[in-house]
């Protein structure tokens, strides 16, 4: 069964390019949304395994989205994919249950992101493994 990915980014070309890159591997079902609100709507209909979230989004921001997803159990893993350099000033990734490895600074290597997604999913499949240290 293919894992479910959700890409949330207000930049259309990022969404499409990233989706193109990842779908080539035939491992994921990929959806995308240009806003947090739309993403939540989609996720409530069907949750995802991994969300790739941009921080700066039109209304609700990426961090808020991650928090809601976690609260509502809409997605198990989140990756930050951001172009901003100073997001750490107002976002504590630890509190969001994420590590530095979950942060991808644009422009990033697609392969690196793919590797991280695979790793996270592997952690899930090995159910008896200790959850990732946060």
């Amino acid at each position: 069964m293919q894992s479910r990915l959700m890409i949330i980014d207000d930049e259309e070309h990022i969404r499409s390019a990233l989706a193109c890159y990842l779908e080539d591997f035939d491992e994921f079902v990929i959806r995308s949304a240009h806003s947090a609100e739309l993403a939540l709507e989609e996720l409530r209909q069907e949750p995802a395994d991994v969300c790739i979230v941009d921080i700066r989004l039109p209304a609700m921001n990426g961090a808020e989205l991650i928090r809601v997803c976690q609260e509502e159990g809409l997605c198990r893993h989140h990756l930050l994919h951001t172009g901003s350099a100073d997001f750490r000033l107002y976002i504590d990734i630890g509190k969001l249950g994420m590590s530095e490895e979950d942060v991808f600074q644009k422009p990033c290597d697609g392969m690196a992101m793919l590797e991280r997604i695979r790793e996270l999913l592997r952690q899930d499949s090995g159910a008896n493994q200790v959850p990732q240290n946060v």
Binding site: E11, A17, Y21, D24, G83, S84, G110
Partner: peptide, 28 residues
């Protein structure tokens, strides 16, 4: 940074897509 990084991200991923989708042995 943010404004530039986004387009750079597009360039980066798009060029990676170009590399990937022109690979002669890539199954897809």
């Amino acid at each position: 940074a943010h404004e530039i990084n986004n387009p750079l991200g597009i360039i980066m991923v798009s060029s990676q897509n170009l590399v990937q989708r022109t690979k002669p042995d890539f199954p897809k």
